[in-house]
Lab assay of single mutants.
Amino acid sequence: IGSLMYASIFGNVSAIIQRLYSGTARYHTQMLRVREFIRFHQIPNPLRQRLEEYFQHAWSYTNGIDMNAVLKGFPECLQADICLHLNRSLLQHCKPFRGATKGCLRALAMKFKTTHAPPGDTLVHAGDLLTALYFISRGSIEILRGDVVVAILGKNDIFGEPLNLYARPGKSNGDVRALTYCDLHKIHRDDLLEVLDMYPEFSDHFWSSLEITFNLRDTNMIPGSPGSTELEGGFSRQRKRKLSFRRRTDKDTEQPGEVSALGPGRAGAGPSSRGRPGGPWGESPSSGPSSPESSEDEGPGRSSSPLRLVPFSSPRPPGEPPGGEPLMEDCEKSSDTCNPLSGAFSGVSNIFSFWGDSRGRQYQELPRCPAPTPSLLNIPLSSPGRRPRGDVESRLDALQRQLNRLETRLSADMATVLQLLQRQMTLVPPAYSAVTTPGPGPTSTSPLLPVSPLPTLTLDSLSQVSQFMACEELPPGAPELPQEGPTRRLSLPGQLGALTSQPLHRHGSDPG
């Protein structure tokens, strides 16, 4: 009997000691992992102490058991019943959930998450997105703005933001810190809205009876308010094209079509300037034949640059190039080494500058006005007194259609001029006259002087055409309008007829 009692007592005591040691061994194993994590990542002392304290409290609170892992091991129907039991206190005593059906309560219970916070733990920081609604079931918390405590909340209090009033989550206007050990039930806004969409009859009752104890939403960050730039940057990543407008005076608003859609830094370009900076079609017209890549860069430059609305530039004389043409100036200075066709295309550029300027006046029909002061630039669209967005969009579309028509007509005119030049060069190729044979009589004449090349004649003739079109064909006081194609086609051969009437002889060394 004594040996039996000794064996039973010894066996029970050893089993008890073994169970104690097993729990202690698990605790030390998990604690060792936490300390190894702290050492590996070199976490500083204040945060390291918070980690160790939280682990110790969580171990004593749950005995080292992962409740979520245990809950996920059950089937979904059983999980709903378990969640309904775990959140029964909240669902029974909170006013917004009263009167809900059994199915609605089960769906809500599945969406709730339980959070346990030790003292000093910050649940929400200032500036964080308010993605959830919090219900306090135990403990107390404090809300701070800077170093000032603005509120202390306790059991059955609710904090967050009214989700039904805002389409997008706002930002917190303060820090939420736990004063004691707290148990909180939180539900994400997407989950709550999903359940309320499934039960629309409960939705009206819920929003009407929901009383948020403390609204954390920062009202200064609401979209459309003066301080909402940061919020707009976070939620409006896919922005449309940006529009900046110059201020319109009362006198300017009476004149229709007073602005032109141009790229940034293009205030001095012609009315047909689009795409790359520098001139019509993204580059100076005089350098068009020598740089074919300008047409390839036109599309990307047009689509990537934001639109700006600026006044037209001052008018340019008909014979003056659009500006920024070092290529043609070098050719004029060193005409001995340049291609003979460069002079002809220089005359073509003069005609283009004249036609572009006159067509700009035809479509816009307003006098040039000086540029406004820099303080009046970049007025935002949302400022008071601005035109409605639809009106601005319609004006932009009208300007775009005008620019497209202008570009089409300029292309047709350019093709006409090039065809005339090619026809003239085919009839009378460039050549130098040879020395004529002296006559049989004693009164022999001296050799004839060489005839100037055709490109120079073409430049003079085209300059005469531009001056003739600019000065004589337009009646005084009438708006400057571009001439039609047949009129220009008839004027060019008439001007060139006198020049080509002389018999030109080919030089023996000319390969053409």
Results as ranks from 00 to 15, higher is better:
128 D>R: 03
130 L>M: 03
133 L>I: 06
133 L>T: 04
134 Y>G: 02
134 Y>N: 04
141 I>V: 10
142 E>A: 10
145 R>Y: 07
148 V>M: 12
149 V>N: 03
150 V>Q: 08
151 A>D: 02
152 I>D: 01
152 I>W: 13
152 I>Y: 04
154 G>A: 08
154 G>P: 02
156 N>P: 03
157 D>P: 01
159 F>G: 03
166 Y>Q: 07
166 Y>G: 11
166 Y>S: 10
167 A>S: 10
168 R>W: 10
168 R>D: 06
169 P>T: 10
170 G>W: 02
170 G>P: 01
172 S>L: 03
177 R>T: 06
177 R>G: 02
178 A>I: 03
182 C>G: 03
183 D>N: 04
184 L>R: 02
184 L>D: 01
187 I>R: 02
187 I>D: 03
188 H>M: 06
189 R>V: 09
190 D>V: 08
191 D>C: 03
194 E>V: 06
194 E>F: 10
195 V>R: 02
196 L>G: 03
196 L>C: 08
199 Y>D: 02
200 P>R: 05
200 P>D: 06
203 S>I: 10
204 D>K: 08
207 W>V: 09
207 W>K: 06
207 W>I: 05
213 T>R: 03
214 F>Y: 12
215 N>S: 06
215 N>H: 01
217 R>W: 01
223 P>R: 12
223 P>N: 09
225 S>P: 14
227 G>V: 10
228 S>G: 08
229 T>Q: 08
231 L>V: 11
231 L>R: 11
234 G>T: 11
236 S>M: 12
238 Q>T: 12
240 K>L: 12
241 R>K: 10
244 S>Y: 14
245 F>M: 12
245 F>Q: 10
246 R>A: 12
247 R>Y: 09
248 R>Y: 12
249 T>S: 12
250 D>M: 06
253 T>Y: 10
255 Q>I: 12
256 P>S: 11
257 G>M: 09
263 G>R: 11
263 G>H: 12
264 P>M: 09
265 G>Q: 12
265 G>F: 04
269 A>E: 11
280 P>M: 07
280 P>V: 12
286 S>A: 15
287 S>E: 12
289 P>K: 01
289 P>W: 05
290 S>L: 04
294 S>L: 04
294 S>K: 04
294 S>P: 13
296 E>P: 09
296 E>T: 15
297 D>M: 11
299 G>A: 08
300 P>T: 12
304 S>N: 03
304 S>V: 06
305 S>C: 07
305 S>Q: 15
306 P>L: 09
308 R>Q: 11
311 P>R: 10
312 F>R: 14
317 P>M: 07
318 P>R: 13
321 P>D: 08
322 P>A: 11
323 G>T: 14
323 G>Y: 01
324 G>S: 06
325 E>M: 12
325 E>Y: 08
326 P>H: 04
327 L>W: 15
330 D>M: 06
332 E>K: 12
332 E>N: 09
333 K>Q: 09
335 S>G: 11
338 C>R: 08
338 C>F: 05
340 P>C: 04
340 P>D: 11
340 P>N: 12
341 L>K: 05
342 S>W: 11
345 F>V: 06
346 S>G: 06
347 G>A: 08
348 V>F: 04
348 V>M: 13
349 S>N: 04
350 N>G: 11
350 N>D: 10
351 I>K: 05
352 F>K: 04
352 F>R: 07
353 S>A: 08
353 S>Y: 04
356 G>M: 08
357 D>T: 11
358 S>M: 01
359 R>F: 10
360 G>T: 10
362 Q>T: 11
362 Q>M: 06
363 Y>T: 09
364 Q>V: 07
364 Q>M: 15
365 E>Y: 04
369 C>K: 03
369 C>Y: 10
370 P>A: 08
370 P>V: 09
371 A>F: 09
372 P>T: 09
372 P>G: 10
373 T>R: 09
373 T>D: 07
374 P>E: 08
379 I>H: 13
382 S>R: 15
382 S>D: 05
393 E>Q: 03
395 R>E: 04
395 R>Q: 11
400 Q>I: 03
402 Q>C: 15
404 N>A: 04
405 R>H: 05
405 R>A: 06
409 R>D: 05
409 R>E: 03
410 L>S: 06
412 A>D: 12
412 A>N: 04
412 A>Q: 04
417 V>E: 04
418 L>V: 14
422 Q>I: 03
426 T>A: 09
428 V>A: 07
428 V>R: 07
434 A>G: 08
435 V>K: 08
436 T>V: 06
442 P>K: 04
450 P>E: 12
450 P>I: 05
451 V>D: 05
452 S>L: 11
455 P>T: 11
462 L>M: 09
465 V>A: 06
466 S>C: 08
468 F>Y: 13
469 M>C: 14
471 C>H: 09
471 C>T: 09
472 E>L: 10
474 L>A: 06
475 P>D: 06
476 P>C: 06
477 G>D: 08
478 A>Q: 05
482 P>F: 05
483 Q>D: 15
486 P>F: 12
486 P>R: 07
494 G>H: 11
497 G>W: 04
498 A>T: 10
499 L>V: 08
500 T>K: 06
501 S>Y: 11
501 S>A: 08
502 Q>W: 15
503 P>G: 11
504 L>Q: 05
505 H>F: 09
506 R>F: 05
509 S>T: 05
509 S>Q: 06
511 P>F: 11
512 G>Q: 13
